[in-house]
Design a binder for these strands. Structure first.
Lengths: 167, 167
DNA sequence: AAAAATTACGTAACTACTTACATAATTAAC
DNA sequence: GTTAATTATGTAAGTAGTTACGTAATTTTT
C-alpha cells in the first residue's frame, strides 16, 4: 500500500501537492496540444491583468501570492511573447506598470473554449467524487487564516510538556 | 477579492498547491524549532525505510512517486547526516540498497512527539472545516486513476468540434 | 553464448520558483 | 529641506525538484 496514504494526516501536504501537480501537468499538456501558444503558468497573471487592466510588479506579486522576482521573470517572458507591455508610472518613478497588449487580449479570447472545457471537467470530476471541493477548500483556508498550522502545532507541543511535570 | 478563489474550478491546482505549501512551511518551521536536527523532506524516505528496511534507489523513487535523481540527492544528504547507509546488492550489482542507521532509527524515535502533535492538529483542522478531507482526497485521486484529467478535457474539447458542423 | 534489450544508477542541465541583498525613487520626520 | 525610513524593482544565488542522457550490470532472445 502507498505509504503516503497510510500516513493519513501526516502526509496531507504531499497528497495536496501530488494532486495539484497531476492537474497542472494534464492542463499543460492540453494547452500544448491546442493551436494557441499558451502556457499554464501565464494564465493567472493574464487573467489578473484582464480584470485590473494596469498593475505594478509588486501589486501583481501580492495579488497572486508570489514573490516579486517570480513576477519580474514572468513579465519578461510575456513581453517577449508580446502578450503584455510595461510603462513607467508618471506619478511614481519606481513603479513599472504592466498591461495586456492587443495580442494578449486576443490570446486570452482564443483559449476561452479550452478554459470552458477545463472548468467543466474539473466540476464534473469533483462532483464524481461526491465532494463540494471548492467549499471545503475555502473552509480549510479560512480555518488556517484564523490560526496558522504553525500556531496550532506549537500550542499542541507546548501542552505536551506540562504532562511531564504532573505528579 | 482574490482572483484565484474567484476563478473557481479554473484555479483548483493553484489552491491545492498553496494549501500544500502553507502546511509544509509551517511544519518545517516546527521541525527547525525542535531540538532534533530534522527536515520535513526527510520524513517520507525515512518512514519508508523504517517500514521496508532495505530498498534500492529506484524502488524508493517509485514508492514515493519521485524521480530517481531526486532520491539519489536525498540519499546523499541523509548519508552525510548519518541517518541512512547504503550497500551494493550481492545478487544484482546494479542495485544500491538503502537502509536506516542506528542514528536514523533514533532520530525517527525522537521526532515522534512532534509527529503526534502534527497529526492531531491536522485532524482537528480538517474537522473544524467540517470536512472528511482524507476520504475526499482518496475519492478525488481514485477518480483521476480511473480517467486522467487530460483524457477528460481532451474528450470534452473534441465534443465541442462537431457542434461547428451542425446544420 | 553472443547480441539485443532492459534495468539501475549517476550526472548535467533545466524549471519555477524562493530568499537575500543592492539600489533607486518616494515619503515621513524633524 | 536634509536625514531617515520605506517602498519598488532588479539581480544573484539557492532549492527541490524535473527531464535528458550516458554507462554499467543484468536479463532475454535467438
Amino acid at each position: 500500500m502507498d505509504l503516503v496514504n497510510e500516513l493519513g494526516e501526516l502526509a496531507l501536504a504531499t497528497r495536496l501537492k501530488r494532486l495539484s501537480e497531476r492537474l497542472s501537468a494534464d492542463v499543460s499538456k492540453i494547452y500544448k496540444e491546442s493551436e494557441v501558444d499558451f502556457e499554464a503558468r501565464w494564465f493567472l497573471i493574464l487573467s489578473l491583468l484582464e480584470r485590473e487592466k494596469l498593475m505594478a510588479i509588486t501589486e501583481i506579486a501580492d495579488s497572486l501570492q508570489l514573490s516579486h522576482p517570480a513576477i519580474i521573470q514572468l513579465v519578461q517572458e510575456l513581453i517577449q511573447k508580446n502578450l503584455i507591455k510595461t510603462t513607467v508610472d508618471k506619478l511614481d518613478g519606481r513603479k513599472r506598470m504592466v498591461l495586456l497588449t492587443a495580442n494578449g487580449k486576443k490570446t486570452l479570447a482564443q483559449i476561452q473554449p479550452v478554459l470552458a472545457s477545463i472548468k467543466e471537467e474539473n466540476k464534473r470530476w469533483i462532483a464524481e467524487a461526491g465532494a463540494n471541493m471548492l467549499t471545503i477548500l475555502t473552509e480549510l483556508e479560512e480555518a488556517l487564516d484564523k490560526q496558522t498550522m504553525y500556531h496550532r502545532i506549537k500550542l499542541n507541543i507546548l501542552q505536551q510538556k506540562p504532562n511531564c511535570e504532573v505528579e
